[in-house]
Design a protein around this nucleic acid. Sequence first.
DNA 1: CTTTGGGTTATGT
DNA 2: ACATAACCCAAAG
Length: 797
Amino acid sequence: MPEKKSKQLTFSQIDAVTVSQRYDPTTVFTVLQELSHYPAWKKFDWDELVKKTSSGISNAREYQMLWRHLAYRYSLHDDFEADDPMDDDSDLDYELEPLPSISAESTPECSACVKVMMASRTLSESTPSSSTIEAPLTVNFPVCHSFRTSREISDPSNLMEQTSITFPVTVQRQTLPTVSSSDALETKGTVGGSMASKRKRKAWSEEEDNQLRAAVQKWGEGNWANMAKGDNFPIKRSATQLSQRWTTLRKKDGSGTSGTVNSGATVTTTNTQYTAEQLATRHSLNLALDMPFKKLTAPGMTDPGRTSMSINNQVQSRNTTQVSTVRSSVPLQRPSQQACGSPVKPTATSDNPVSRCIASSAREIKPANIHSGAQTVSRSNAVPNAASSAREIKPANIHSGAQTVLRSNAVPNAVIVARELKPAIIHSGAQTVSRSNAVPNAAISARELKPAITHSGAQTVSRSNGIPNAAISAREIRPANIHSGAQTVSRSNAVPNAAISARESKPAIVHSGAQTVSRSNAVPNAAISARELKPAIVHSGAQTVSRSNAVPNAAISARELKPAIIHSGAQTVSRSNAVPNVSPQFKVSQTKNVAHLVPAGSSMAKTSISAGLHSNQKVHSNVTSVKEQEKRVSDSGSTPKEKVTEKNVVHAVPAGSSLTKTSISAGLPSDQKDKHVTSMKDHEKIVSDPGSTPKEKVKEAGASALITQSQIDNKQNKVGLDLDKAKSTPSMKVLEHKAVPQNPGRCEEQGSVKNSIFIPKPTGNGNSNLNEESQVQNQDKKASSVNGSSNQPSKQE
DNA sequence: CTTTGGGTTATGT
DNA sequence: ACATAACCCAAAG
């Protein structure tokens, strides 16, 4: 029995056994529960507590002792008549480790312990609830106190044995404490009859959101059915609902406005994530304690760092969402994977400069939350001949940290590999597979970089300076959302004999970032290839496979550049100036797939075309609005003169040349009905409905909308007839760029689609994306004709 | 089975 | 009253 107090002790399994030998789990939980309900501002009045307690403890000193044992490993002595005063809190200076180390094996057992304890409690109390959950629960107890909980095995000699026990556990089903206050639970047939209310909506609570995030983290997106069916899945929603909610959540998280960006160490609600085990434990505790989870704060503590017991600590740290007093300075680790309480940085590093020839690998580094820490697989200084690899680095949230697989200085002959870097959300961090300085003969590869959302971080596979003979490859870079970050596979300066390849870069949405496979300056004998660059939507970013200046003997290839919609960005496969002997395999200006062509400059930093181009939004907004109006029109049969006001139009905000200035998404309507990709359907619908003759106005505010040639080409053939039909709706007012349309006759008259094509203007300075950008702006804004390819935008009645 | 589109409801302005 | 967001259902893929 532990007797000595010491700082940062942990509540060990031995302690648990000690407690359980002495007290019934129900008693323990009751005490904790009562204490947790105790006003936080109040100093514990043990006498008062004991008077009211339902734990069965009648002695205030004993009550206090139990608490202190749980919270601070205070010794469980038998002498309750001790002479030390009750209000002596001196021992409370010695708190337990907030996140004690728990072995990977014992974690599920802890969880199981809680379940069993919960079961015992609910059984003993025989709550008058109707339904019960019955399931065999196999628990592998190295050291535990199962005999008490099962109430059937009563041989204490088994105490320290390692046994595997299967409990027939029957748990009373209890209502989830997750329902928000505004929601009633009456939906699911509480009283035997009325299932009739088929559409009782139930708002998603914060906790449900977090649970969903955790579930997605565990099962991945798409397995909604499995989640919904999952036995211990806490969310009682259908698969469809899960899916829908997830899309909503993603949007939310992607908006970056929901307090998800934290500068400090504290965690806000939306990004707290839980693993399934955590959730299970948490839920079990909820049930066991019969209390809302948020009340598990260490009660009565003035020091928020203090906690009640180890398991409580874990729970607390997972529950930073609503417990304002808990400072989650120590990010939670996935308990089943790693030991709890590991330091902030979940790193697999070989930073030791002394060591040589080290291979460091990290598999499945999956911290739940990385708020300010860096997840790094790195080797820092002067480590020759090293190989570092990281597989499946899947942080759920990286708020301000950098996920990095890098090697920084003077690392010759290194191999850095990162596979499946899948951060769910990177808010401001940089996901980088890079090597920076003077790294000869290196191979850097990253496979499956799939951040779901990158807000302002740069996803980069790069090599910057003076790196001869390097191979840089990135496969399957698929960020779902890149808001302002740059996805880059690049090499910038003076990199001779390099091969840069990027395969399957498929960002779903690139808002203002530049997706670039480029090589900029003075790169002789280089091969740059990009395969399957398929951004779904590029809002204002430039997707570029380019080589700009003085690059002789280069081969640039791009296969399958298939942007679904390029709104204002430039997808370019180009070589601009003074590049002899080039055989680009992909000619942009002649392909249907790339329409909105902006000559890419040499500088990556300057390729953020966003400049005032949110035509996308305009188009979408207008389309959507018109659609809706049309709907109304057709519904009413009238011809209302409705206006689509500028609310639906995203105004042109000239963006600066630097990436940091191109956060177009900020100005975008938060909701495009989630139909970015599919909105062309709306187009079709609009123009294809000849029945109505709405006199609608789609106001343009200065800037004209843009629909790229790819859109036109992809859709126009299909829509062609419909477009013709659409002539019958001349009252619809949409701007049009009559710029060398492939179907000029049609486009000119329909007035329903703005069409603009930008042919790259060969300038004297191919580096100047700024110039290019401004040209685009000019084209867009002033509708000035560049190369005669763009005409004045016109409004039609 | 999941996603998508549309309708409905709730909430904010 | 209107606009938007959130939710639910049904159909499409």
